[in-house]
Write a protein that binds this DNA or RNA. Sequence first.
DNA 1: CTGTTAGCGCATTCAA
DNA 2: TTGAATGCGCTAACAG
Lengths: 334, 334
Amino acid sequence: MPATIHDVAKKAKVGIGTVSSVLNNSRPVNEETRKRVLAAIAELDFVPNSSGRRLSLGKTHMIGVVIPYFSTPSQVERLRGAMSVLADSVYDVSLFTVETTSQRQKILKTVPHRGRIDGLIIFSLEPTEEDLQQIVQKDVPTVLVESKHAHLHSIYLDDVAAAKEAVNYLITLGHRKIGFISDRLNDSFGSLFSCNRYKGYCQALKEAGIPINPEYHRQGDVSRDKAREMALYLLQLPDPPTAIFAYSDVQALGVLEAARDLHIDVPTDLSVIGYDDIEIAYFARLTTVRQQLYDSGVKGVRLLFDVMNNPNLPLNCIQLPTELVVRQTTAPPT
Amino acid sequence: MPATIHDVAKKAKVGIGTVSSVLNNSRPVNEETRKRVLAAIAELDFVPNSSGRRLSLGKTHMIGVVIPYFSTPSQVERLRGAMSVLADSVYDVSLFTVETTSQRQKILKTVPHRGRIDGLIIFSLEPTEEDLQQIVQKDVPTVLVESKHAHLHSIYLDDVAAAKEAVNYLITLGHRKIGFISDRLNDSFGSLFSCNRYKGYCQALKEAGIPINPEYHRQGDVSRDKAREMALYLLQLPDPPTAIFAYSDVQALGVLEAARDLHIDVPTDLSVIGYDDIEIAYFARLTTVRQQLYDSGVKGVRLLFDVMNNPNLPLNCIQLPTELVVRQTTAPPT
DNA sequence: CTGTTAGCGCATTCAA
DNA sequence: TTGAATGCGCTAACAG
């Protein structure tokens, strides 16, 4: 139903090649005929059909964005960063949110195809070997964000060190009984940051000569509610922790709620540290590990564009810094 | 570089028509040859090129999603609802976030094109007459969410009534000095909910015989920080309000921060009501107007699918309910 | 400077 | 049940 290039050509009394030329500035066109073509385009309200364009060009002008945990503010912040760059580009964004393991599999298997997207950016997911085969074989330019892989470009952060720093801070304050609340360490989701943060937690304790008490580590899904539940458990232990490090700010909020429920004063009787520094952390006056969420999206897309423009770019793994932001949920134990 | 349908046909020693048939189950195929084709497909790791498929079918298998204020949790929640339905469909999602007025214009002008998307869902934006022309003329199935238009299908809510209810509640509690903090009423962005909520605010006051004090209404951008700034202004007025109704939960959090800054106790010395009931509102114990954010996305997409399946569906405008959720930021004035 | 043509990869019709 | 031919709308190479 919409006008095609042929309609324009006929109305402007030119060939379709000429129309294409004025559309893409692909070759010089006489000013007179250009005007006629432009007039015809305007009159017919013609817009090139993108499917035709894509097929002919062999490009989709689409960037695939795969993003899990989409409900969490940190992920949204990453996506915002990515969108800010993407919006100024010629590419459209094809969004894939992944909520379940089966979705994860399906998406990682079906999305990386030339002819479907020109480039792919994957957030917070560690591709399996199988996924990798798929991606490499399909030869679609790919960048990982908040994840790392020996064979893929990535924007990552040192979760182990960051978590260690946070726990070290608690130790410096004088805490010895430090709890850790995290996502499931063994989910089949393929995100390793929970594991890495746990590693950092363990390392800090070990180096301080504090034995690791498995009772002090709880894992569950990423929701605030679940975190609250886990914190309630920890805080009602016979010998409860005096500090809790949460794997995310959202979980830290759950911990704060639990403390409130039990009339435990933060930070006097309980110190809490989160991770991410999402916007609400400021409101909650939460001490937390700041990571550059927005920037990770920005840099991820920029790197992706680099890769797309230069297919044999040497492997690029960019580490983003983290920073412990001390606010008002941490204090020495009493 | 990737295998095409011809490669498969050759390898399976059949015509491309047969390959297409087994791909789409479009006509019966002999079991024997089907197996051969399937084997060839597997061996070549063939995946149909979507551009070719789209061009041939005249469909893009793409749903455009236009969403402003993308950084706010309420919008993310809507998008999540939409994605939950979209993810189970055969459609891909083309995401357009709009942050600026110029983006808004560009997107609303260039996105609604057959050949680019098969359906469009627009969140929280009131199309202008010009936009409407574009959309109607292009004949792209479209659904509005959190917005309404005489000629477009929509999922909307009664902002006026909801705001009025919130302010009425404050009046019932005994408040007479009620402030209102909102988004800019005259932004060129084309979102009317700020206006509507202001209307509800005014109506409630008027019906209660309370004069409207322009000093009590502040407008600024939607950020928490700006809201805090505006609240600071209100609370430092010679005769400050005893209650503040904020146009969104995020702004309400800013108000709470301002109160904290000034050591004003909430709810004893200041009542605060928000709008949206985003997840963090529960954490902040915020009294607020709950709207069905997630559901609005779900229903929006469902309606869109209905429209796409039945182009001359009579105009469908579905109103979603709101509900005042009383928590702990509201109390009678002292 | 411009018109014509081939072909991008696929679905589908028309014959067989 | 199947193969061959046509066309979707466009870009780019070719020829004028």
